[in-house]
Nucleic acid binder design. Sequence first.
DNA 1: TCTTGACATTCCAGTGGCTGGAACCCCCAT
DNA 2: ATGGGGGTTCCAGCCACTGGAATGTCAAGA
Lengths: 129, 129
Amino acid sequence: MNIGEVAERAGLPPKTIRYYEDIGLVKPLRDTNGYRAFRESDMHKLAFLGRARALGFSIEDCRNLLALWEDQHRASADVRTIAKDHLAQIETKIADLQAMRDTLSDLVQACAGDDRPDCPILKTLENSA
Amino acid sequence: MNIGEVAERAGLPPKTIRYYEDIGLVKPLRDTNGYRAFRESDMHKLAFLGRARALGFSIEDCRNLLALWEDQHRASADVRTIAKDHLAQIETKIADLQAMRDTLSDLVQACAGDDRPDCPILKTLENSA
DNA sequence: TCTTGACATTCCAGTGGCTGGAACCCCCAT
DNA sequence: ATGGGGGTTCCAGCCACTGGAATGTCAAGA
């Protein structure tokens, strides 16, 4: 399988796949012409990576998840720990963003948004958020 | 005022302040010894930047907000537009993260997290999220 | 057979917003 | 004179790609 087909099937850009090879996440074979030759197993790995990335896991998390996936003797606790930590980070990020949203939403609400210069948004940034 | 004091007062690391000068957000004077000499107005700009950044505005947004702040003849509509666009982006990000959180939370819930290898998290990443 | 066009390759540089570190300079108190 | 705590510059690295240039390869059609 060439990179184009894999990209199509895994739903990842070719550039990303080359990058994943660069950093050692996949190790496709090579044809005599120098083209990457992906096996089905490479494809599955890439699809796995795509899904893990879509859930927001870092590349390093993905690397660990991939290793656990391939380890028949893994403990599900190890997987769960990674996921739980990541979940906690996401919760934190959501809370941060919600705080920003609340403040911003109030400010946007309070601003007339006309051609006059008076602006509670700037006033807030000026004085203290 | 030296950079240390400004950093303290504006609540920004010296490195960040130097960076902001690098990209033209502030233009402190220089003492004869080469040290940056910040005026009160520089300090206020930096505090403004700190607050805008804390609300998640990009550096480019900050640059524009700063320009509007200093423009006596600005229209509040211009400020509001920037804030509204940013708010929309935050809403999108929150929604994305919430979707991740929901999926992850279900998965973490479903995973026994013991020493056995069976793991619904890996199974989901394997098959389709 | 030649050409065309869609694929593939490598390598370098840039994104955003800092941050760490090295190597050096300056000022004040002892 | 010395030591320590400032300050300075510049270069490199973070994360996860992404764009682009220069080049090579392959299959199909004139």
